[in-house]
């Protein structure tokens, strides 16, 4: 009988600038070899729901890690307090995010049970950051973008955010990209999703996009009113197929 035993715990990884940052690491306890996934949390932070997603990857046979992107601003704080602090300071700079994902990927590859293949997935603001990682790091093997906003367009003028669009980075995308979006989402709109799709096609970047009817932003979030089980279940099937293809041995 196949074992479903897993281990999940807090570890420290070396992130941007050599900083030691907190991360939640979940993996099957077998000898592998396993593909790995860096889970990028949403703007509300390194919370219980994101840790649950991280364990879900371990259940499905991946080593998975979620870095606390707010470690520096709020070490040891409750996730909601940490998110509030990070927000008050203007959010996570893109350069730092890339360094933290790079450190997390290196940590995963250094594990004895790793097959050396690492993907990245992000939700909401993390979806944008997954795309950023795919375009900034040359050793990521697959990236899943779940309703990432502000990839194609800058935030609205009334949003005093330092975040800027990433569409100009499309030629740098170094791995296949899976995009999962809701047809009723306003950030990003279906038109923005279509623009990103065509831009990736223009530069001959391997990608597959799926837009789910009846779903808006945050349809994977089981603890929020935006949860849409049908879209989420189908979305997870797309994720397993995509990572199964690109992160397998």
């Amino acid at each position: 009988m196949m074992s479903d035993q897993m281990l999940a715990e807090t570890v420290e990884v070396e992130g941007f600038g050599g900083d030691g940052i907190e991360a939640y690491f979940a993996r099957p306890t077998g000898s592998g070899p396993y593909g790995s996934v860096v889970v990028i949390h949403h703007m509300p932070g390194y919370d219980e729901a994101t840790k649950e997603i991280t364990r879900k990857f371990a259940y499905h046979g991946y080593q998975a890690i979620c870095v606390n992107l707010y470690s520096r601003e709020a070490p040891g704080a409750a996730p909601d307090d940490a998110a509030a602090t990070a927000r008050a300071r203007g959010g996570v700079p893109d350069e730092r995010l890339v360094g933290d994902v790079k450190g997390a990927a290196e940590f995963l590859r250094s594990q004895a049970a790793s097959n050396s293949r690492v993907g990245v997935i992000g939700y909401c603001s993390g979806g944008r950051q997954a795309f950023l990682s795919a375009c900034s790091l040359d050793d990521i093997d697959a990236a899943a973008v779940c309703y990432g906003a502000f990839i194609v367009s800058d935030p609205l003028p009334e949003m005093p955010s330092k975040v800027r669009s990433l569409i100009h980075l499309t030629p740098n995308a170094a791995c296949p990209i899976l995009g999962l979006f809701g047809a009723e989402d306003k950030f990003p709109t279906p038109e923005e999703v279509a623009k990103l799709d065509s831009e990736l096609t223009k530069y001959s970047k391997e990608h597959e996009f799926h837009i789910f009817e009846g779903a808006g932003h945050g349809f994977f979030a089981v603890d929020r009113p935006s949860y849409r089980p049908e879209a989420a279940n189908e979305g997870w099937q797309k994720i397993w197929a995509f990572f199964g293809k690109h992160l397998s041995n």
Partner: peptide, 26 residues
């Protein structure tokens, strides 16, 4: 933005803060 506790997709949120006392001084 997204609330942490209120069962709505978006809400008007206010944080009153004293940063010198740390993130939980909120």
């Amino acid at each position: 933005d997204h609330p942490v506790h209120l069962p709505l997709e978006h809400s008007l949120n206010i944080d009153f803060l004293q940063p010198s006392l740390g993130p939980s001084a909120r």
